[in-house]
Every structure is written in structure tokens, then in C-alpha cells.
């Protein structure tokens, strides 16, 4: 009886793994298709669609745009998030709970609605659609995340560490640069990394707020209009590969930085 239950459990786990991996395997497999349709039977392997992607100026410039928006908006998010988390954690401010709630509020609102709001505002104020506009939207969604992560890590122990530094004669800016930032580095890093991945993958805000120059997810979306196409498989597989490399890299570096 026990053995049957165990067997059933393992079969179940394998089935779920299968479900989770099915679309990814299909995606990658048919990116190597030699013919023009990413459907069975498999005719590859061939790298022609990867060549097509890399020689497509629209896709490569969208990739650069995406990276730029992701890095810059994440830097802005993590900086604003860190400073505000530090301010709220270290000082007694009137209405602190309310203000903290305000900063984290965008976390509970759909990207679509945030994007809509910015679209209406920018339209009304005459701000043209651009990558900067999309970047602003990305900071709106990632700032609360960075704030929440960093704020949650600023415990009493950190407060005492900063006190010790002040007690030993460090000026406020030295406490910040020499103590707080290095000690909070894992949380800052985590906030930055998460912001990067969310911005990198964000579609609807970029879709609403950019026009000619746009980000990779929007460009992929444009590709989709031409129906099933191994080129889309190839670009999707490339994005996936880059993400995996990044995840493994961060996983290893974060694991190595095990705090005491």
C-alpha cells in the first residue's frame, strides 16, 4: 500500500514536470527547425533561424533597448527603494505606516492599469511615447518591490551595527557607504536582480508607452502577428538561454555570499 502511494506520488511529480517543460521543449526543439513552420515533423537541426534573428536589426536593437531600460530603471528603483527603506527604518516619521503603505501600493495594481494611467497622464501632459516613458513605468512597478525587500531586511541588528559605527565616530554619509550599503548588499542585490527580470520581461507598459523604438517583448509580440514562425522560437530560446545563465550566475554568487 505504502509502495503504491509512493509510486503514485513520483508519477504525479513526473507528470507535473512534464507539463511544466512541455512548451519549453517544444519551443527550443522547433527553433532548430530547418523548414518554415515550427510544427511536427521535426526537420532540423538547423541554425538558420538563429542567424535570421541575429541579422534582424529590429530585434537586436530591441534587445539593446530592453537591456538599457532594465538596467537603468532597476538602478533607479533600487536607489529610491533603498533610500526610502533606510529613512523609514531608522527614523520616526509622522504618518510612517501610511506613507510606507503608499509606496508599496502599486504592488497590488495590475501592470495594465498602471500603464493605462501613465498613458492617459502622458497623453494629457503632451509627453511623447518613448523608452523613457516605459522606463518610468518600470520604476513604478519595481520601486515598491525594492522598498519592500530592503525594508524587511533592516532589523534591529542592523540598527545596532549602524549605531556602533556612529559611536566610533563615523559621520552619517560614512555610515551609509561603509556600513549600511555593504551590510544590506544581499537585499539590495536581490531587489536589483528582481527588478531587472521584471523589467526585462514586461510587456504591457512598454506596449502602451513606446512607439517606434521599443523593447524586446513588444518586438516579439509584433513577430507573433505573422503567425507561427521558427524565428519566434529562436528569439524565445535565446531570451530563455540568457535568463538561465543569469539565474545560475546569481544563484551561485548569492549562495556564496552566505551571511553569518
Amino acid at each position: 500500500m505504502r509502495a503504491i502511494v509512493r509510486l503514485a506520488a513520483w508519477l504525479y511529480a513526473i507528470a507535473i514536470y512534464g507539463f511544466i517543460f512541455l512548451p519549453v521543449v517544444v519551443l527550443v526543439l522547433f527553433s532548430l527547425q530547418a523548414t518554415s513552420f515550427p510544427i511536427p515533423p521535426f526537420t532540423g537541426p538547423s541554425l538558420r533561424w538563429y542567424q535570421a534573428v541575429l541579422s534582424d536589426a529590429r530585434l537586436t536593437s530591441a534587445l539593446v533597448n530592453s537591456l538599457l531600460v532594465a538596467v537603468l530603471s532597476s538602478l533607479a528603483s533600487v536607489t529610491l527603494g533603498f533610500l526610502s527603506a533606510w529613512g523609514f527604518a531608522r527614523f520616526v516619521l509622522p504618518g510612517s505606516a501610511f506613507l510606507r503603505g503608499l509606496i508599496t501600493l502599486p504592488l497590488t495594481v495590475s501592470y495594465l492599469i498602471i500603464g493605462m494611467g501613465l498613458l492617459v497622464l502622458f497623453n494629457w501632459a503632451g509627453v511623447p511615447k518613448s523608452l523613457v516613458a516605459a522606463g518610468i513605468g518600470h520604476v513604478v512597478i519595481n520601486l515598491p518591490l525594492c522598498f519592500a525587500i530592503i525594508y524587511s531586511q533592516m532589523g534591529d541588528h542592523q540598527i545596532n551595527i549602524e549605531r556602533a559605527a556612529r559611536d566610533l565616530g563615523a559621520a552619517e554619509w560614512k555610515v551609509l557607504l561603509m556600513i549600511t550599503v555593504p551590510v544590506m548588499a544581499p537585499a539590495i542585490f536581490a531587489g536589483f536582480f528582481l527588478s531587472m527580470t521584471f523589467s526585462w520581461d514586461e510587456f504591457v507598459i512598454s506596449f502602451l508607452l513606446t512607439r517606434f523604438e521599443t523593447t524586446l517583448p513588444v518586438e516579439i509580440w509584433n513577430l507573433l502577428r505573422s503567425g507561427l514562425n521558427p524565428k519566434t522560437n529562436a528569439v524565445g530560446s535565446l531570451v530563455f538561454a540568457v535568463s538561465i545563465v543569469l539565474v545560475v550566475f546569481f544563484e551561485l554568487t548569492l549562495l556564496r555570499r552566505k551571511p553569518a
Binding site: 541588528h157 549605531r163 556602533a164 556612529r166 565616530g169
Partner: peptide, 20 residues
Amino acid sequence: VPPAKRPTTTVFQDYALFPH
């Protein structure tokens, strides 16, 4: 007078050593 400017130093209960 703030802690940095007075001739006292504190040893904290959790030691507050700088971990990095």
C-alpha cells in the same frame, strides 16, 4: 552630544560587529 562626539564607547549586547 551625539555618540560620535562624546568620550564614551558602547559594547552592544549583540556585539554589532560589522559582518563585511
